[in-house]
Computed example of a mutant assay.
Amino acid sequence: MRARSHSEVVSLNEAHALLGLTGPAESEALTAAFRAAVKAAHPSAAGGDAERFRKVIAAWRLIQERDRPLALAAPTVRPPSPPVVTIGPMDALNGGHVAVRLAGRTLDVRLPKGVRSGEHLRLRGAGDGGTDVYLPVLVRAADGLTVMGDDLHMSWPVTPRLIEDGGRLEIETHAGPRSAWIVAGLEPPVRLRLLGLGLPARGGRPAGHLFVTLIPSADAPSAAEDLLIRFTRVWTPDRLAA
């Protein structure tokens, strides 16, 4: 029978004891225990000893080979992840309904106004055994709008001269036309904030704002053309007849 060397560790129980553990441990706790044990056993440390130092290292290697792979093994069957409810900014603004495919069924899910990315929609009794299912929400950019937190972002073309000289402009937003003034001499990119035109307040979240980035464009209507467009919109034959 072969005699074991001074540095050999024959069992996991002995290996755990050398590291100051009573049994298997999670990765971080195991690493911390090894570092503390090997530091205390180092020959240069007070009370350290070369033989114990070698045993601590042998214990660590044994646990690495036999214990950790079992402790960290992933389950062979993972439960399916719930589908992500992907919507556009207008859905987040106005709420409504969206069709969601879940476990072979198509469900009509109600969207509340002001739902944000990262929130979850609760489907009562839709899971196995009548359990509730929580579906994560993702609001993607669409219709020229991007959602960031509580706020909406869009861009709007303007003439370079308007940015240089300043003046009044009209912006077509999701809530209808809005007027704004810009001062002369601003350095691009120029961004305007239209208060209260972001996502509506919901729960503890405040109402957001609409941020409009002005994009210099030679094709954008001039101030005079913009005024004519607005005049034409107001004084249409239908409105005159009314």
Rank of each mutant, 00 (worst) to 15 (best):
S222I: 07
E28H: 07
M1F: 03
V158S: 11
G95I: 01
T86Q: 13
L214F: 08
A180W: 00
L135E: 12
S7G: 12
D143R: 10
D91C: 05
V100D: 03
A141E: 13
E28R: 11
W156F: 09
A175D: 15
E225W: 01
P237G: 10
A25Y: 00
P188I: 00
I57Q: 09
I229T: 13
I229R: 14
L214K: 09
R52T: 13
G203M: 10
E65V: 02
W181T: 13
D226I: 02
G203V: 11
R66H: 08
L197P: 04
I171E: 08
L135I: 01
L62A: 01
L30W: 14
R122S: 05
G167T: 13
E28N: 08
A25F: 03
A99H: 04
L210D: 12
I215R: 14
L123Q: 14
V10K: 04
P89D: 03
R124F: 01
E187F: 02
R230C: 08
E172L: 12
V183E: 15
V133Q: 08
R52V: 04
A15F: 02
A73T: 02
P200H: 02
P79G: 09
A74P: 00
H42D: 14
V147D: 06
H209R: 05
Y134N: 06
S81G: 07
D165V: 05
V115T: 04
D219C: 02
D151H: 14
A218W: 02
H97V: 14
K55R: 15
